[in-house]
Write a protein that binds this DNA or RNA. Structure first.
Lengths: 341, 341
DNA sequence: TTGAAAGCGGTACCAA
DNA sequence: TTGGTACCGCTTTCAA
């Protein structure tokens, strides 16, 4: 069965192709009766406007690029995509995904080939650092560049980011005000993937500890494990190897906190009875396992970023190009006032 | 800065536009020297082939649709998308997402408007049931339809599914062979989203129980809670309300098992000491938390589905149109031989 | 309110 | 190996 084209519809409806076109894209310019006739003919012929042809004529691509460090399966990336999608799709845009822009090779390949050039109307950069040269290359695409949780917004037309440092500062402060004295920060580091959120969170922890009243006599430390398979075990072992088990654990992310809680039980450490633990993200399971954490909402950030992109594409001025949101402390069941042992 | 077009590049390279086109899409038809000249000129002018124009001319859209019941943030959907993406993107296709095709309204809207008509080269249906009328409507798009974990492949050109019933049958069998006698199956049901995997898993459980040797005197039961916020609490409460706490718990999915394990500890039930528990999916955290489970690999299924789609689009015959894979039992730390109490 | 026609940026046939 | 050219399916200006 051959696909019918605009001429077939025009013939079937007894109008010109101009009218068919208008019936779809500018219904207000066509009389009611004509429009109904056209739409009905189109439906019978299984006809729809071709997006490629429209795009070509309009000089837009109706496509945006989304660059991410890891894969789309990570909690943050999936939520960000969902947010962007939820505003771009209704606006008629498709999303072209570029995953795993996180190794030297893939980065170079992407930024020198620049496959998006002339083929997207905007590009989103989610959650990773790009260097000045890369930003400049991206600029050659001649379209708006929007950052989501990028460490800097130098070179971006718009951005929205969570204040990681402030979030972790608050988390730590909370632990301190609960009366805990021996606090450890557990984090994972990776050399391949530069993710600046990681550093900012660590800084927030340190700052809060240093800022605590000296008479409190805080005993704090940072435990860093290599990211990758087995990093939970590594963190677990390091924690257990401590001379004295901490009163409170501050985790760089929920993904670290949740397995830790489960595993620590086997070694006789129960939260919140024996120690308080706090995560960061409020990601999958955090609520189900009753984890106290700092909430960030990547889906909302994706939506906000997409709205900015739409404005930028349309040439509308942005009321607020660069936005920062602060994580919210969600008090659940893994924190408690310190009980001297 | 105006975008340059193919003519500018042709001029700069001193060739015709045909040659420019060929240099990009059929490099083997152009002499090495010419190609280099063209590519260099193009790079200097920030030029790239326009995908919309190419698509228009080629009569393809280089776009595929992915329909899913829930949002893209669910573990299964994110992994499936990642799989499809990893083969479609390199092949030059974008993915048009249609999320939340799970309520009566969104379904009707989608299947009567059929926005994909003439605008995609293939459509993937991930993990939900569609009725005969809907399949027929989809057929009007006149492109291959590929199912991923759809309960039936009636009307599909290709499909790949996990055998949920067999998977859960094996999980249950394992629990029985461990010597457990009092086994409960915990599952969540939702009326809005018809997800047939759910039913199949339940059937597998029941079949395994009924098939167990009569002399074993198995005491089994099914616990169903309403899906939605608070369903973990509901399951937890139901479990605790049981006259006798079970020896073994079989969970419809990891998402249920993991929070249950954590919460049950508060009520004095420890796995694997007091009871065995098994999940289904091998999703996020299952490994970190050491959960014994049935593995399914939606990313691999997405890849397989995408390869089928590519064959179908190219008109290549499929060696195996409809495929079924079986979940694999992953033995970890939440199952143990039954200890009489 | 509707129709005719030019052109968006490519591809591929045909000829050289 | 390269160039000329018709045409892919639509949108929009201009005229009726």
């Amino acid at each position: 069965m051959a696909q019918s084209d605009i001429h077939d519809v025009a013939k079937a409806a007894g109008v010109s192709i101009s009218t068919v076109s208008r019936a779809f894209t500018r219904p207000e310019l066509v009389s009611d009766k004509t429009r109904r006739k056209v739409l009905q003919a189109a439906d019978q012929l299984d006809y729809n406007i071709s997006r490629s042809a429209g795009a070509l004529k309009m000089g837009q691509t109706y496509r945006v690029a989304l660059l991410m460090n890891e894969g789309i399966t990570s909690w943050f990336n999936a939520a960000t995509l969902a947010g962007i999608e939820s505003v771009m799709h209704p606006a008629g845009y498709d999303i072209s995904l570029f995953q795993h822009i996180d190794t030297a090779e893939t980065r170079r390949a992407f930024f020198t080939e620049l496959p998006i050039r002339r083929n997207v109307d905007a590009v989103f950069v989610a959650s990773f650092a790009i260097d000045p040269y890369e930003v400049e290359q991206l600029g050659r695409a001649n379209v708006p560049i929007i950052g989501i949780n990028t460490p800097s917004f130098e070179g971006f037309d718009a951005s929205i980011s969570i204040d990681d440092e402030e979030g972790m500062f608050r988390a730590t402060q909370h632990l301190i005000s609960l009366g805990h004295r021996h606090i450890v920060y557990v984090c994972s580091a990776s050399e391949t993937s530069m993710n600046a959120s990681i550093d900012a969170r660590g800084r927030g922890f340190v700052r809060a500890c240093k800022a605590s009243a000296p008479q409190r006599d805080l005993d704090w430390q940072v435990l860093t494990v290599q990211r990758g398979p087995g990093f939970i075990d590594a963190a677990l072992a390091a924690l257990i190897a401590l001379d004295r088990f901490p009163d409170a654990i501050c985790c760089q992310m929920d993904m670290l906190a949740i397995p830790l809680i489960m595993r620590l039980q086997r070694y006789g450490h129960y939260t919140p009875k024996d120690y308080s633990i706090i995560g960061f993200d409020d990601s999958t399971y955090a609520n189900d396992v009753n984890l106290t954490t700092i909430r960030q909402d990547p889906e909302a950030m994706g939506q906000a970023a997409a709205r900015k992109a739409l404005d930028l594409i349309a040439g509308r001025p942005l009321d607020l190009a660069h936005e920062t949101v602060t994580g919210q402390l969600i008090l659940r069941g893994t924190d408690a006032v310190h009980q001297p042992r």
